[in-house]
Structures are given as C-alpha cells and as structure tokens.
Simulated assay, not measured.
Amino acid sequence: MSDPDARPRPQYGEYASESEQRAHIREPLAEPAPTPLNPPVAPMRPALSYEAAAPVDPARAARQPDRIVTIVLLVLGALNVATSFFSFLDFATMVDRSYVMMGVDGSFSNFAAGKTWGLISALVLVAGYIATVVIARGRMKANKLAWFIPIGGAIVTFVVLMACVSVPLMSDPAFVEYVTSNAS
C-alpha cells in the first residue's frame, strides 16, 4: 500500500478539513488579471426567484383536474346564490310564481311569515355557500380532493333551505288546500 502522507493534500474538496473548507469559502480564489485574451467579465447576478424554474410537485399536478372541477362548481354555486338570494327576499312573489307552475288555485297570503322565513332562507343560502367555499379552499390548499365539497355543500344547503321554505308554506291556506285536495 502507498503512504497516505506521500500524496499532496488538497486545499479544498472532500479531503479538506472543515477549517480549510471554511477558509476557502471566506477567501475565494483570486481571479486572473484582465489581459487582451481575458477581458473583464461582469460578475453574475443571482437569479431572482421568479426566474428560477420552480420544481413541479407531482402530487399537485395530479390534482389539477380536481381543482378545475372544484372551481367550476363553486362558480356555478356563486351564480345560483346571486340569482336566488333576491328571490328569497321577495318570498311572496317567488311562491306565487311557483303556485302558477304547480297549478295551485289561489295565491300566497302568509306575508309576515314569508318575509321572515324568506330573509332566513336568503341568509342560509349565503352562509351555506361561504362554508362550502371555505371548506373546499382548505382542502385544495392541503392538496386533497375537493370536488365533492361543492356538491355536498349544495345538498346540505338545499335541505336546510327546504325546511326554511316549508315553514311559511305549511301555514298558507292556498298551499294547504292544494296538498290536501291532491292527497286523496
């Protein structure tokens, strides 16, 4: 075997001690003096964060279709909330239009309950949408599947809305007459 001391000791690299490495880092190699064959070069500036290509996270890339579907469903929900909100605030008119489509004889006459429960329904609609957006956004940020959150939020909100709407309808004489006459 050869004598390890016979080899020249490197000044840097894997064989250099930690103190030699630190000394080399503090004192970089001197650059050669400029000559006609070696013109001065401007020092390189560090790359800005937006210039560096960000590494692609495969799990995030795999969730891209889920994100698109979730966002599309949330946008459709926002359109539904925007168009339905004012209908609930004018509850009597909304119910009268429904009565015409259903073939109910008469018109909605429980105005006080309709106004109260219409406002409650409008607030439930907005609260349900906001809760859905918050939960879906949280799942998307955590890189988890989220497409089913807008669907589930719509179903839960719809069930609560139907409970709110049924309160004034069940005390409206025209609706009660329609239900009892069609029950037999």
Score class of each variant (00 low, 15 high):
7 R>G: 00
42 A>M: 09
15 Y>D: 10
153 G>V: 03
15 Y>N: 06
14 E>H: 13
114 G>R: 09
37 L>I: 08
73 L>W: 07
176 V>Y: 05
96 D>W: 10
24 H>G: 13
134 V>E: 03
149 I>P: 01
162 M>W: 02
120 I>L: 15
163 A>E: 06
139 R>S: 01
28 P>K: 11
15 Y>G: 01
155 I>M: 11
10 P>Q: 09
77 G>M: 06
31 E>H: 12
46 P>I: 05
24 H>A: 15
48 L>Y: 11
180 T>D: 01
101 M>V: 11
41 V>P: 00
152 G>T: 04
77 G>K: 10
64 Q>Y: 07
129 Y>C: 00
128 G>R: 07
156 V>T: 04
115 K>F: 03
42 A>T: 15
78 A>C: 02
118 G>D: 04
15 Y>I: 04
38 N>E: 05
160 V>M: 10
23 A>H: 12
22 R>S: 10
177 E>Q: 15
158 F>V: 05
60 R>G: 10
161 L>T: 04
128 G>Q: 07
5 D>F: 15
142 A>M: 04
167 V>F: 12
29 L>V: 02
42 A>G: 03
108 F>D: 03
100 V>F: 05
122 A>M: 04
41 V>S: 12
175 F>L: 10
55 P>R: 08
28 P>N: 09
139 R>V: 01
58 P>H: 00
87 S>F: 12
150 P>Y: 02
160 V>L: 14
129 Y>N: 00
39 P>R: 14
75 V>A: 08
113 A>Y: 03
86 F>Y: 12
150 P>Q: 02
154 A>R: 06
145 L>M: 06
13 G>H: 08
18 E>Y: 13
36 P>Q: 04
45 R>C: 06
3 D>K: 06
11 Q>M: 10
94 M>D: 06
165 V>S: 02
13 G>A: 10
18 E>I: 12
106 G>R: 12
111 F>N: 11
13 G>Q: 05
140 M>D: 09
164 C>I: 02
120 I>T: 06
64 Q>T: 14
171 S>F: 11
16 A>L: 11
114 G>E: 02
99 Y>G: 05
140 M>C: 04
139 R>D: 05
174 A>L: 03
79 L>P: 00
164 C>M: 13
67 R>P: 04
143 N>Y: 00
126 V>G: 00
166 S>M: 13
74 L>I: 10
114 G>T: 06
65 P>A: 01
133 V>L: 07
72 V>E: 03
53 A>L: 14
91 F>W: 07
163 A>C: 01
61 A>Q: 09
91 F>A: 08
183 A>E: 02
31 E>I: 05
117 W>S: 03
164 C>H: 01
171 S>I: 04
13 G>D: 07
32 P>A: 15
36 P>C: 00
170 M>Q: 08
97 R>A: 14
54 A>R: 13
3 D>E: 09
8 P>G: 03
96 D>F: 09
165 V>F: 01
69 V>E: 04
15 Y>E: 13
162 M>V: 08
24 H>M: 07
44 M>Q: 15
178 Y>I: 00
150 P>N: 01
101 M>E: 11
128 G>V: 07
172 D>G: 08
63 R>A: 15
101 M>R: 10
80 N>T: 15
104 V>N: 08
173 P>I: 08
174 A>R: 11
35 T>D: 08
178 Y>L: 01
89 L>R: 11
125 L>S: 01
41 V>A: 15
137 R>V: 13
183 A>W: 13
163 A>K: 03
34 P>M: 14
67 R>Y: 09
136 A>W: 05
2 S>H: 06
